[in-house]
Each structure stands twice: as C-alpha cells, then as structure tokens.
Design a protein around this nucleic acid. Structure first.
Length: 713
DNA sequence: GTAGGGTTAG
C-alpha cells in the first residue's frame, strides 16, 4: 500500500526534475514504476523517452517510442536530438520528415539538431527549406536556431543550390531585410551567414564565434579579425573557440608577433592547455619557422589528441626535419593515439624526402588496414612518396586506381615521371590533365617544365612557359624561370640561358645562376662560368656550391693558380666542402657511405667486389674518366679516389647483400659523378641488376648497360 | 548551436 503511494510520489518528483536521473539504472526503474502503477500515457511515455535520450540511451528510447501510435512532440524531439547526438544524421532527418507528415508542429528546441544533421549530411537544399519553415513559424529570432543556421551556411559553402539560398530571404518581409536591396548576385554561403547574423536580435559568444570561423574558413581574414574587434566592443570576451579560429589566420600571414600576443592572452586566461588552442599555436609557430616554440607548446599540453600530434608532425615536415617527424609519428602510435587520415598525408612527404621506401610501404599498409583508401590527399601523397622513393611503377598504379584526380594528384604523377626521366610521358599526362578540364596551377607548370628540362624538350617548354601568361593568366615565378634556365643550360644553349636569366622579370637568385653554372661545367665553358660565378658571388658571396664547381673547373683546365686562390678564400670564410654521401636501405635499416670513408663493417667485401667487377669492366672497355677529380694528384691516385666514391660503395654494398636480380636503390645527396654514371652502367650489365640512383635532381635507372636518362643530365 | 592539423615544387 504505502509502497505504491510513495512510488507515485517519487514519480512526481522525478518528473518535475528529470535531470535528477543520472544513470541508466534509475531511468529503467522509473520506466518500470510507470508501467507498474498506471498504464503508460502518451505524455508520461514521452517524459521517459526524453529521460532516456538525455542519457544518450537511444536503444531504450526507440523501443518505447515505437510503441506509441501517435507520438507527441516531446517524444519526436527527443528522438531526433538523440539521433543527431549519435551521429545518425539521416535517421534524424527522416524522423523530422515523419514528424511533420504526422501533423505535429516542431518547436524551437528541435531545429538546432535538424540543422546540424543537414550540415553533416551536406544537404543544403533540405537545410534551406528548414530555414524557410523556421521563418514561417516565426522562430527566425531564436538564438540557438540562428547559430545552427549560420553554422550550416558556413560549412556548406559552395555545395551548389545557391539559387534557393536566396529564396529564404526573399520570403521575408522586405523591411526585415533593412532596406537592403537583394542584388541579382546570388548570396554565397558566407553572405547567408552574415544575413542571419545581422537579423539576430540577441547574439551570444557562440554566434560571434560561428561567424568568425565562417569568415576565417572562407579566407576572409580581415573580416574575421574585424568581427573579433567588434565583439570585444560589445563586451563579449573572446574564448578558446574564438582564438582557435583566429590563430590559423596568423599562421597564414606568418605573423608571429600577433600570434604571440594571442599566446600571451591565452596564458593569462588560463586556456593555454586547451587542445584546440595548443594545436593552433604549434602550427602557427611551425609556419613561422619557429619549430622550437612549437615543441615547447606541445610539451606543455596536458592532453594530446591526434591533431595535436599531427600539428607538430606537419610542422617538422614543413621545416625539413623529416627524421623528427617520423619519430614523433611513431611516438603517437606508441601512445595509442590513433592517427587520423590527415596524419598520413603529413608524414608521407617525410618518407618521400628521405627516400625511405620501406617506411613508406609500412605507412601504405597502415593506410589500407585503417580503411583510409580513397582519400585524395593520402593518395596524392602516396603517389609522390612512391615516385620519390624510386618506384614510379607503384606510384602510377595508385594514380591509375584513383577515382578522381585533382591538380595536385596530376602534378604529383607528372613530376614523378619527370624525375624518372620519362619526359614525354609527363608531357602527355599534362595534356591529358588539361583535356579532362583540370586547370594547371603554378606547381603543375613547374612539373611540366621540369619534365621538358630533363629530356631536352626546348620547344615544348617555351610553349608551356608562354601559355602560362597567355592562356592561364599565371605570372611565372622564380621556379618557372629557374626551370627554363636550367633547360636551356642543359641543352647547351648557354648564352641563351645567360640572356634569359639576365632579363627575368623576377630578381634571379644565386640558385638560378647556379643551375647555369653547373651547365657551364657540364659543357666545359670556363669563360662563361666565370661570368656566371661573379653573378652568384654578387648576391651570395658564400655560395659554397659555386666555389666547389669553380674549383672543379679550374682543376680540369689545369688552372691551379686560380683554384688555389679560390680554395684560400673558401678556407678564410670557413667553408668546408659538403661531403658527398649515398644511402641504401637494407633489412629495414639505412646504410650511409661517405666518399672515401672506409669505416663500414663490410668494407673489405665491398672492395673485393669492386676490384673483381672492375677487372671485368676494363675488359669490356671501361676507361676511368678522371677529369672530374678536383684534387691535384697523379692519375693513379685519381682512379683510387673515384673507386671510393660513395655511390659506388653503396651500389656494391647492395649487390653483395641481396639476391641476384634484386633491384638496387641508392640515394645520393649531390649530383651523381660522371665517371660513376659510366661505371654503374657497366656494373648493371655485368651483374644483370636494375640499379636506381636518386641524386639531388632526378632518378637514374641503370639497366642492361644503359641509363634511363640517355646520358642527358 | 561554435574551434585546431593535410597532399603537388625547389
């Protein structure tokens, strides 16, 4: 008796305070009490449903919901909110449609969820009609609904259907639009955001944050910053959301000064350990080349998610610290933080730069297992990684399997073929890209010009270079001039290259002149080389590459006096020749060889091999070309020096440690030496191996005694 | 109802 009346009392108090129910157990008890003490009315069932959904107990809520013949608004609203909470957006939307079909009229509580679902489903058309409905219900002033509307228009920019985006505003009484004329131009997403914002009678910090994020993500940085100032004028204080929208703007502007001001503000507000702020700060410092500051911010984070890690990984890559990037990626995996898809597109370029095929392959495996295939960012990075790691075939396979190609993936494969000496293939891919309606950008032109340069397609290159301005309205930048200058130089048109560089519309840098200098060296034109070197030293008096090249040229011309003078100058400036080194991967480890260094544990076997193969080479007609040896020593000594060249040591190491027929992949930090190029051709023939050498400008595929570059390099 | 990191060049 008394138990029944006390439970009725309990139900009453609980219904008045549904938030007091905090556990699944309590909710189920209440549900049971209802069933025991009275038949469950539609109203009380709705209350129980809303309690279930507040606890995110979707399953329980749905079981009860489905017993109702004509669910009241509260029941509908609860279920729709819960679907949205659980990311079941299409269910949320179809429930909303069903609710309207059943004749129930939604109230303001439900629209934020519905609009979020439209946003997440990228369904702008439905979202717009919901907007119209909101206006007709007179709910166009609801704070939460308007915030959700702004978010939707901001996120779904460029999703098409711009026509109806204007419609909603057309339906409003003209005076609400504040006399503003609806121009014939259809409003873009951000215009819709602005209009919703302006019509809001009351705005809170979320409203400001939403429009600021909208401007920031549309690249309208100044508008975003203006809004931050305006919000401060309205006495609304920027919070973590505001600032993590603003910081990326300063990354983009490479404005550490203002970034640091925010950093200070954030510390004073005690929100510097926020993960969002943290990753924005890491990124901001990294983009401003202050990677140590990025590391410091990262180390102070209390919690690190995959994005915090990836901000620093990406930062390392942007600053050329590839090994550290890989190390941190491993730390992330060890810390059981699951890398998201973005992490792969950040870390793969590190493998590409380091030419570490085995790591790249491991990452590729990870991508496949993680189900991240079909991501255009990752696929483009994979194409690039495989081609930079020497496997153009694997790169092409991935490229061909991609469903869509954008200018980045096209550029990656074009550059890949260019670097592997397939200039004609690269050019025809470039044409194919244009045929498919993908507009080449600056980088694509760098790629196609590089392709032309590596195979000597002078006329084609001129055509492309001119089409940049004439057809695509792109101003040639330093890289394009450099590529053309390089092309002319390689083709032996040294004077033409000299004039071209002298008349560039961009101030030539030391590196542009340097490519010509190395062409002068290849084509043995000392006179022009001296003129070019002067140009280089005028802008960069400590250009070591130029010093070394000039020393080489003086040496090979027997101009020992000039050479000595230059040597002395290098010594005075404290310049030391960068040692030539080559790497090869073996058993998942990288083995490095420095020219003339005999410290590797396999050196004895390497020498044995080289001596044996040398004997065979000489029988087949190899004559050492000692002209490239800079040192002023006798012929015999010169030959010994060539013998110890790093690329030769690495190739030998690869051959003696692998099964017959295995492809040998070697990476060298500077250009491959002329004599080694000849020698490795012989070695490929004698040992019947494919040998791939990546030097600092391209790949050489040696096979059956010849090289893919056709000796044009 | 609001926020952060990514691919192609040299």
């Amino acid at each position: 008796m008394s138990s029944s009346s006390s439970s009725k009392a309990l139900i009453k108090t609980l219904i008045k305070n549904p938030t007091r129910i905090r556990s699944k157990h309590q909710a189920k008890q209440l549900h049971a009490q209802f069933l025991r003490t009275q038949s469950l009315s539609h109203t009380s069932a709705s209350v129980v449903i809303s309690i279930y959904t507040n606890l995110k107990l979707l399953h329980e809520a749905l079981l009860l919901f489905r017993t109702l013949e004509s669910p009241p608004v509260l029941a509908w609203k609860s279920v729709i909110r819960c679907f949205t909470d659980q990311s079941l957006f299409s269910h949320a939307l179809s429930s909303f449609v069903d609710m309207r079909a059943s004749g129930r009229c939604p109230d303001h509580n439900v629209f934020p969820s519905v609009l979020k679902s439209c946003t997440m489903m990228s369904d702008l058309r439905l979202g717009e009609s919901v907007h119209g409905y909101v206006v007709r219900l007179g709910l166009g002033c609801d704070l939460y609904t308007c915030n959700a509307l702004m978010n939707m228009y901001a996120k779904l920019q460029g999703m098409g259907s711009k026509i109806s985006a204007g419609k909603v505003f057309d339906e409003m009484p003209q005076r609400i639009l504040d006399g503003e004329t609806m121009s014939n131009a259809l409003p873009s997403g951000i215009d819709s955001v602005r209009k919703v914002f302006e019509l809001m009678p009351r705005k809170d910090v979320v409203s400001w944050n939403t429009i600021i994020a909208g401007y920031a993500q549309s690249g309208m940085y100044e508008d975003a910053l203006r809004m931050v100032r305006e919000m401060a004028n309205e006495d609304i204080k920027p919070d973590a959301f505001t600032l993590s929208s603003v910081l990326p703007i300063f990354s983009e502007y490479v404005d550490v000064k203002r970034g640091k001001e925010i950093h200070g503000y954030v510390i004073r507000k005690g929100i510097d350990a926020d993960v969002y702020i943290g990753s924005s700060l890491v990124d901001m410092y990294a983009k401003s080349a202050r990677i140590e500051d990025s590391e410091r911010v990262f180390s102070h984070l209390l919690r690190r998610d995959s994005i915090s890690y990836n901000s620093l990984v990406a930062g390392y890559v942007q600053n050329g610290r590839y090994n550290e990037a890989l190390k941190l990626f491993r730390q992330m995996v060890t810390a059981k933080v699951r890398p998201g898809p973005v992490a792969f597109s950040s870390v793969l370029p590190a493998c590409a730069h380091l030419s570490t095929l085995h790591l790249g392959k491991q990452l590729h495996g990870y991508v496949l297992r993680g189900g991240y295939s079909d991501n255009i960012f990752i696929d483009s990075a994979l194409v690039d990684m495989y081609s930079k790691c020497g496997s153009i075939k694997a790169a092409r396979k991935i490229f061909d399997r991609m469903n869509v190609h954008d200018e980045v993936s096209w550029t990656a494969i074009i550059m890949g073929h260019a670097l592997h000496g397939h200039g004609h293939e690269a050019v025809s891919l470039f044409e194919e890209m244009k045929l498919q309606g993908v507009k080449p950008n600056h980088v694509a032109f760098v790629a196609v010009l590089t392709a032309c340069s590596h195979v000597g397609l002078v006329d084609e290159a001129w055509g492309y270079f001119n089409s940049m301005t004439e057809v695509y309205g792109l101003n040639p930048e330093l890289e394009h001039y450099a590529a053309v200058a390089d092309l002319l130089g390689r083709a032996g048109k040294l004077e033409e290259a000299y004039d071209f560089i002298s008349n560039m519309r961009v101030e030539p840098t030391g590196s542009v002149w340097s490519t010509l200098l190395s062409s002068c060296s290849v084509h043995k034109n000392l006179e022009l080389a001296e003129k070019v070197a002067e140009k280089i030293f005028a802008v960069d008096s400590e250009n070591m590459g130029a010093c070394v090249l000039m020393c080489n040229m003086y040496a090979s011309n027997g101009r020992w006096k000039e050479m000595a003078k230059l040597r002395l100058r290098m010594k005075k400036l404290g310049m030391r020749k960068k040692p030539a080194c080559s790497w090869i991967e073996f058993k998942d480890k990288t083995h490095g060889f420095v020219s003339g260094d005999r410290s590797h544990s396999s050196m004895e076997r390497i020498n044995e091999f080289l001596e044996a193969v040398m004997e065979q080479m000489e029988k087949e007609g190899y004559v050492a070309d000692t002209s490239g040896v800079l040192h002023d020593v006798d012929e015999e000594h010169k030959r010994e020096l060539l013998f110890g060249h790093s690329e030769r040591l690495a190739v030998a190491f690869g051959i003696i440690n692998t099964e017959p027929g295995t492809t040998i992949r070697v990476t060298k930090n500077i250009r491959i030496c002329r004599d080694c190029h000849v020698a490795i051709k012989f070695i490929s023939k004698i040992t019947e191996r494919e040998i791939i050498v990546r030097d600092n400008s391209r790949f050489h595929h040696f096979n059956h005694g010849s090289c893919s570059c056709g000796d044009y390099w």
